[in-house]
Design a protein around this nucleic acid. Structure first.
Lengths: 151, 151
DNA sequence: GTAATTTCTAAACCTAACTTTAAGTCAAGA
DNA sequence: TCTTGACTTAAAGTTAGGTTTAGAAATTAC
Protein backbone atom coordinates (compact mmCIF):
# COMPACT_ATOMS: atom_id res chain seq x y z
CA UNK A 1 0.00 0.00 0.00
CA UNK A 2 1.33 3.35 -1.03
CA UNK A 3 1.84 6.07 1.56
CA UNK A 4 -0.61 8.34 -0.20
CA UNK A 5 -3.46 5.97 0.54
CA UNK A 6 -3.69 7.23 4.09
CA UNK A 7 -4.77 5.59 7.30
CA UNK A 8 -7.94 3.58 7.72
CA UNK A 9 -10.11 4.43 10.67
CA UNK A 10 -9.00 1.37 12.61
CA UNK A 11 -5.37 2.29 12.26
CA UNK A 12 -6.10 5.83 13.39
CA UNK A 13 -7.96 4.45 16.36
CA UNK A 14 -5.01 2.28 17.35
CA UNK A 15 -2.60 5.17 17.05
CA UNK A 16 -4.68 7.57 19.11
CA UNK A 17 -6.24 5.21 21.59
CA UNK A 18 -9.69 6.46 20.62
CA UNK A 19 -12.58 4.17 19.79
CA UNK A 20 -13.53 3.93 16.15
CA UNK A 21 -17.00 5.10 17.03
CA UNK A 22 -15.58 8.16 18.74
CA UNK A 23 -13.63 9.13 15.65
CA UNK A 24 -16.75 8.89 13.52
CA UNK A 25 -18.58 10.93 16.10
CA UNK A 26 -15.92 13.64 15.99
CA UNK A 27 -16.33 13.76 12.26
CA UNK A 28 -20.06 14.31 12.67
CA UNK A 29 -19.21 17.15 15.03
CA UNK A 30 -16.93 18.73 12.48
CA UNK A 31 -13.66 18.10 14.28
CA UNK A 32 -12.02 16.09 11.55
CA UNK A 33 -12.60 15.60 7.82
CA UNK A 34 -11.25 12.47 6.20
CA UNK A 35 -11.61 11.78 2.50
CA UNK A 36 -13.10 8.62 1.08
CA UNK A 37 -11.39 5.97 -0.97
CA UNK A 38 -12.93 4.31 -4.02
CA UNK A 39 -14.89 1.93 -1.83
CA UNK A 40 -16.33 4.69 0.33
CA UNK A 41 -14.14 4.07 3.35
CA UNK A 42 -12.63 6.89 5.37
CA UNK A 43 -8.95 7.65 4.92
CA UNK A 44 -6.92 9.92 7.17
CA UNK A 45 -3.69 11.85 6.96
CA UNK A 46 -0.85 11.45 9.40
CA UNK A 47 -1.56 14.96 10.64
CA UNK A 48 -4.94 13.77 11.86
CA UNK A 49 -3.24 11.81 14.63
CA UNK A 50 -2.03 15.09 15.98
CA UNK A 51 -5.38 16.69 15.44
CA UNK A 52 -7.12 14.06 17.51
CA UNK A 53 -4.42 14.24 20.13
CA UNK A 54 -5.21 17.88 20.44
CA UNK A 55 -8.89 17.14 20.81
CA UNK A 56 -8.17 14.79 23.67
CA UNK A 57 -5.96 17.27 25.43
CA UNK A 58 -8.39 20.10 24.98
CA UNK A 59 -11.09 17.96 26.52
CA UNK A 60 -8.94 17.47 29.55
CA UNK A 61 -8.86 21.20 29.80
CA UNK A 62 -12.61 21.27 29.95
CA UNK A 63 -13.40 22.46 26.43
CA UNK A 64 -16.57 21.17 24.85
CA UNK A 65 -16.47 19.70 21.36
CA UNK A 66 -18.04 22.80 19.77
CA UNK A 67 -15.42 24.91 21.50
CA UNK A 68 -12.67 22.67 20.25
CA UNK A 69 -14.09 22.92 16.76
CA UNK A 70 -13.81 26.70 16.97
CA UNK A 71 -10.24 26.53 18.14
CA UNK A 72 -9.33 24.17 15.34
CA UNK A 73 -10.86 26.53 12.82
CA UNK A 74 -8.05 28.92 13.65
CA UNK A 75 -5.68 26.56 12.01
CA UNK A 76 -4.61 27.99 8.67
CA UNK A 77 -7.01 26.73 6.07
CA UNK A 78 -5.84 23.70 4.26
CA UNK A 79 -2.25 23.30 5.03
CA UNK A 80 -0.99 20.68 7.39
CA UNK A 81 -0.58 22.25 10.80
CA UNK A 82 2.97 22.93 11.84
CA UNK A 83 4.42 22.63 15.33
CA UNK A 84 4.16 26.40 15.48
CA UNK A 85 0.42 26.23 14.79
CA UNK A 86 -0.02 23.82 17.64
CA UNK A 87 2.08 26.00 19.86
CA UNK A 88 -0.17 28.95 19.14
CA UNK A 89 -3.40 27.25 20.03
CA UNK A 90 -1.85 25.58 23.02
CA UNK A 91 -1.16 28.99 24.39
CA UNK A 92 -4.87 29.68 24.25
CA UNK A 93 -5.41 26.60 26.35
CA UNK A 94 -2.88 27.80 28.83
CA UNK A 95 -4.92 30.94 29.36
CA UNK A 96 -8.09 29.00 29.95
CA UNK A 97 -6.34 26.69 32.35
CA UNK A 98 -4.97 29.62 34.30
CA UNK A 99 -8.50 30.93 34.68
CA UNK A 100 -9.81 27.61 35.91
CA UNK A 101 -7.09 27.33 38.49
CA UNK A 102 -7.80 30.85 39.59
CA UNK A 103 -11.47 30.16 40.07
CA UNK A 104 -10.79 27.05 42.11
CA UNK A 105 -8.33 28.88 44.31
CA UNK A 106 -10.85 31.59 44.99
CA UNK A 107 -13.36 28.90 45.82
CA UNK A 108 -10.87 27.39 48.24
CA UNK A 109 -10.26 30.70 49.94
CA UNK A 110 -13.98 31.16 50.40
CA UNK A 111 -14.33 27.69 51.78
CA UNK A 112 -11.60 28.40 54.28
CA UNK A 113 -13.59 31.40 55.45
CA UNK A 114 -16.70 29.27 55.74
CA UNK A 115 -14.97 26.49 57.59
CA UNK A 116 -14.09 29.15 60.07
CA UNK A 117 -17.65 30.30 60.56
CA UNK A 118 -19.42 27.01 59.95
CA UNK A 119 -22.41 28.92 58.69
CA UNK A 120 -23.31 27.68 55.21
CA UNK A 121 -26.24 30.06 55.37
CA UNK A 122 -27.35 31.03 51.92
CA UNK A 123 -27.44 34.81 51.98
CA UNK A 124 -24.28 35.20 54.02
CA UNK A 125 -21.90 32.66 52.60
CA UNK A 126 -19.50 33.82 49.94
CA UNK A 127 -19.42 30.34 48.49
CA UNK A 128 -22.62 31.13 46.72
CA UNK A 129 -21.16 33.89 44.66
CA UNK A 130 -17.45 33.47 44.27
CA UNK A 131 -17.72 35.25 40.94
CA UNK A 132 -17.60 31.94 39.20
CA UNK A 133 -17.67 31.92 35.46
CA UNK A 134 -16.67 28.27 35.44
CA UNK A 135 -19.83 27.29 33.63
CA UNK A 136 -20.88 24.58 36.08
CA UNK A 137 -19.91 21.47 34.18
CA UNK A 138 -22.44 18.77 33.53
CA UNK A 139 -25.42 18.95 31.31
CA UNK A 140 -29.01 19.98 31.39
CA UNK A 141 -30.32 23.33 32.53
CA UNK A 142 -29.23 24.27 35.97
CA UNK A 143 -29.34 27.63 37.57
CA UNK A 144 -27.07 27.61 40.55
CA UNK A 145 -26.04 30.66 42.38
CA UNK A 146 -25.08 33.15 39.74
CA UNK A 147 -26.97 31.60 36.86
CA UNK A 148 -30.35 33.16 37.38
CA UNK A 149 -33.49 31.55 35.95
CA UNK A 150 -34.72 35.01 34.97
CA UNK A 151 -35.42 34.43 31.30
CA UNK B 1 -49.41 27.08 61.01
CA UNK B 2 -47.32 25.80 63.86
CA UNK B 3 -43.56 25.75 63.57
CA UNK B 4 -43.51 21.99 63.95
CA UNK B 5 -45.35 21.59 60.65
CA UNK B 6 -42.16 22.22 58.72
CA UNK B 7 -41.54 23.73 55.33
CA UNK B 8 -43.39 22.80 52.17
CA UNK B 9 -41.29 22.02 49.13
CA UNK B 10 -42.07 25.36 47.50
CA UNK B 11 -40.88 27.24 50.53
CA UNK B 12 -37.69 25.23 50.64
CA UNK B 13 -37.18 25.93 46.95
CA UNK B 14 -37.54 29.66 47.52
CA UNK B 15 -35.11 29.60 50.43
CA UNK B 16 -32.43 27.64 48.61
CA UNK B 17 -32.90 28.92 45.08
CA UNK B 18 -33.30 25.37 43.82
CA UNK B 19 -36.12 24.26 41.55
CA UNK B 20 -38.84 22.20 43.14
CA UNK B 21 -38.11 19.45 40.64
CA UNK B 22 -34.46 19.43 41.65
CA UNK B 23 -35.35 18.97 45.31
CA UNK B 24 -37.55 16.01 44.48
CA UNK B 25 -34.76 14.63 42.34
CA UNK B 26 -32.28 14.94 45.18
CA UNK B 27 -34.65 13.01 47.36
CA UNK B 28 -34.76 10.24 44.78
CA UNK B 29 -30.97 10.21 44.89
CA UNK B 30 -30.99 9.85 48.65
CA UNK B 31 -29.63 13.28 49.48
CA UNK B 32 -32.54 14.44 51.60
CA UNK B 33 -35.42 12.74 53.41
CA UNK B 34 -38.50 14.77 54.21
CA UNK B 35 -41.47 13.36 56.06
CA UNK B 36 -45.03 13.48 54.76
CA UNK B 37 -47.95 15.35 56.25
CA UNK B 38 -51.47 13.94 56.55
CA UNK B 39 -52.22 14.81 52.94
CA UNK B 40 -49.08 13.11 51.65
CA UNK B 41 -47.12 16.28 50.94
CA UNK B 42 -43.41 16.61 51.72
CA UNK B 43 -42.40 18.57 54.78
CA UNK B 44 -38.86 19.71 55.54
CA UNK B 45 -36.92 20.82 58.58
CA UNK B 46 -35.07 24.09 58.78
CA UNK B 47 -31.83 22.11 58.84
CA UNK B 48 -32.60 20.90 55.35
CA UNK B 49 -31.92 24.36 53.97
CA UNK B 50 -28.36 23.98 55.14
CA UNK B 51 -28.21 20.45 53.84
CA UNK B 52 -29.19 21.57 50.36
CA UNK B 53 -26.80 24.48 50.59
CA UNK B 54 -24.07 21.99 51.20
CA UNK B 55 -25.16 19.95 48.20
CA UNK B 56 -24.89 22.99 45.96
CA UNK B 57 -21.47 23.87 47.26
CA UNK B 58 -20.19 20.33 46.94
CA UNK B 59 -21.37 20.29 43.34
CA UNK B 60 -19.31 23.36 42.66
CA UNK B 61 -16.39 21.37 43.93
CA UNK B 62 -17.06 18.77 41.32
CA UNK B 63 -18.57 16.05 43.47
CA UNK B 64 -21.19 13.84 41.90
CA UNK B 65 -24.49 13.32 43.67
CA UNK B 66 -23.56 9.80 44.80
CA UNK B 67 -20.35 11.19 46.24
CA UNK B 68 -22.23 13.92 48.03
CA UNK B 69 -24.59 11.33 49.44
CA UNK B 70 -21.63 9.49 50.90
CA UNK B 71 -20.25 12.62 52.45
CA UNK B 72 -23.60 13.49 53.98
CA UNK B 73 -23.79 10.08 55.60
CA UNK B 74 -21.11 11.30 57.95
CA UNK B 75 -23.59 13.67 59.50
CA UNK B 76 -24.89 12.50 62.88
CA UNK B 77 -27.98 10.39 62.41
CA UNK B 78 -30.57 11.55 64.84
CA UNK B 79 -29.71 15.04 65.92
CA UNK B 80 -29.85 18.20 63.90
CA UNK B 81 -26.36 18.92 62.57
CA UNK B 82 -24.44 21.59 64.39
CA UNK B 83 -22.12 24.14 62.83
CA UNK B 84 -19.26 21.96 64.00
CA UNK B 85 -20.68 19.02 62.04
CA UNK B 86 -20.72 21.10 58.88
CA UNK B 87 -17.25 22.30 59.59
CA UNK B 88 -16.03 18.74 59.81
CA UNK B 89 -17.39 17.61 56.49
CA UNK B 90 -16.39 20.84 54.81
CA UNK B 91 -12.83 20.00 55.65
CA UNK B 92 -13.21 16.89 53.54
CA UNK B 93 -14.15 19.13 50.65
CA UNK B 94 -11.12 21.24 51.24
CA UNK B 95 -8.94 18.18 50.76
CA UNK B 96 -10.61 17.26 47.51
CA UNK B 97 -10.31 20.79 46.25
CA UNK B 98 -6.63 20.83 47.03
CA UNK B 99 -6.22 17.71 44.96
CA UNK B 100 -8.11 19.16 42.02
CA UNK B 101 -6.00 22.28 42.04
CA UNK B 102 -2.92 20.14 42.23
CA UNK B 103 -3.94 18.10 39.23
CA UNK B 104 -4.65 21.17 37.16
CA UNK B 105 -1.35 22.72 38.06
CA UNK B 106 0.46 19.57 37.00
CA UNK B 107 -1.49 19.70 33.77
CA UNK B 108 -0.38 23.28 33.28
CA UNK B 109 3.24 22.42 33.87
CA UNK B 110 3.03 19.65 31.33
CA UNK B 111 1.40 21.95 28.86
CA UNK B 112 4.20 24.42 29.33
CA UNK B 113 6.63 21.67 28.46
CA UNK B 114 4.66 20.85 25.37
CA UNK B 115 4.38 24.44 24.25
CA UNK B 116 8.12 24.36 24.27
CA UNK B 117 8.39 21.31 22.08
CA UNK B 118 5.23 21.68 20.02
CA UNK B 119 5.08 17.95 19.56
CA UNK B 120 1.72 16.67 20.74
CA UNK B 121 2.86 13.23 19.75
CA UNK B 122 1.00 10.58 21.64
CA UNK B 123 3.67 8.34 23.07
CA UNK B 124 5.98 11.18 23.99
CA UNK B 125 3.71 13.84 25.39
CA UNK B 126 3.23 13.91 29.13
CA UNK B 127 -0.15 15.51 28.68
CA UNK B 128 -1.56 12.07 28.04
CA UNK B 129 -0.69 10.73 31.41
CA UNK B 130 -0.37 13.47 33.97
CA UNK B 131 -1.56 11.01 36.58
CA UNK B 132 -4.99 12.47 36.41
CA UNK B 133 -7.65 11.11 38.69
CA UNK B 134 -9.88 14.07 37.92
CA UNK B 135 -12.58 11.81 36.53
CA UNK B 136 -13.09 13.70 33.28
CA UNK B 137 -16.33 15.59 33.86
CA UNK B 138 -19.28 15.10 31.58
CA UNK B 139 -21.40 12.05 31.23
CA UNK B 140 -21.56 8.82 29.31
CA UNK B 141 -18.83 6.29 29.11
CA UNK B 142 -15.53 7.73 28.09
CA UNK B 143 -12.17 6.21 28.50
CA UNK B 144 -9.63 8.87 27.97
CA UNK B 145 -6.00 8.38 28.73
CA UNK B 146 -5.94 6.76 32.11
CA UNK B 147 -9.45 5.37 32.15
CA UNK B 148 -8.85 2.14 30.27
CA UNK B 149 -11.70 0.22 28.66
CA UNK B 150 -10.21 -2.98 30.01
CA UNK B 151 -13.25 -4.44 31.74
C1' DG C 1 -68.09 27.20 49.57
C1' DT C 2 -65.57 27.92 45.78
C1' DA C 3 -61.56 29.40 43.23
C1' DA C 4 -56.73 29.63 42.89
C1' DT C 5 -52.37 27.69 44.33
C1' DT C 6 -49.46 23.99 45.50
C1' DT C 7 -48.28 19.64 45.52
C1' DC C 8 -48.50 14.77 44.11
C1' DT C 9 -46.74 10.77 40.84
C1' DA C 10 -45.07 8.73 36.75
C1' DA C 11 -43.21 9.04 32.58
C1' DA C 12 -41.11 11.38 28.96
C1' DC C 13 -37.77 14.71 27.46
C1' DC C 14 -33.16 17.28 27.44
C1' DT C 15 -27.82 17.82 26.64
C1' DA C 16 -23.10 16.03 25.94
C1' DA C 17 -20.31 12.70 24.46
C1' DC C 18 -20.26 8.67 23.10
C1' DT C 19 -21.35 3.30 22.44
C1' DT C 20 -24.10 -0.42 20.68
C1' DT C 21 -26.63 -2.81 17.35
C1' DA C 22 -28.18 -4.38 12.92
C1' DA C 23 -27.66 -5.31 8.40
C1' DG C 24 -25.00 -4.80 4.72
C1' DT C 25 -20.36 -3.58 1.92
C1' DC C 26 -15.23 -3.58 1.19
C1' DA C 27 -10.59 -5.48 1.44
C1' DA C 28 -7.08 -8.87 2.05
C1' DG C 29 -5.09 -13.43 2.64
C1' DA C 30 -4.92 -18.58 1.45
C1' DT D 1 -12.80 -17.81 -4.94
C1' DC D 2 -13.97 -17.74 -0.61
C1' DT D 3 -13.80 -16.32 3.87
C1' DT D 4 -12.60 -13.54 7.47
C1' DG D 5 -11.98 -9.07 9.34
C1' DA D 6 -12.55 -4.20 8.83
C1' DC D 7 -15.67 -0.75 7.39
C1' DT D 8 -20.35 1.48 6.25
C1' DT D 9 -24.88 3.79 7.84
C1' DA D 10 -28.78 4.92 10.71
C1' DA D 11 -31.00 4.57 14.78
C1' DA D 12 -31.37 3.62 19.41
C1' DG D 13 -29.19 3.22 24.05
C1' DT D 14 -26.32 5.21 28.02
C1' DT D 15 -25.04 8.49 31.94
C1' DA D 16 -25.67 12.60 34.90
C1' DG D 17 -28.42 15.89 36.44
C1' DG D 18 -32.17 17.62 35.93
C1' DT D 19 -36.87 19.69 33.59
C1' DT D 20 -41.45 19.20 31.55
C1' DT D 21 -45.92 17.46 31.23
C1' DA D 22 -50.34 15.62 32.54
C1' DG D 23 -53.96 14.64 35.38
C1' DA D 24 -55.35 14.28 40.04
C1' DA D 25 -55.48 15.50 45.00
C1' DA D 26 -54.39 18.75 48.83
C1' DT D 27 -54.07 23.38 50.68
C1' DT D 28 -54.83 28.19 50.90
C1' DA D 29 -57.27 32.42 49.94
C1' DC D 30 -61.38 34.90 49.63
Amino acid sequence: MAVSEGLAIGALARRTGLAVSAIRYYEAQGLISPWRNAGGQRRYQRADIRRLSFVMIAQKFGLTLPEIREVLLELPGNRTPTPQDWKNISEGLRTRLDQRIDTLMRLRDNLDGCIGCGCLSLPKCKLYNPDDRAKSHGSGPRYLMGDAPET
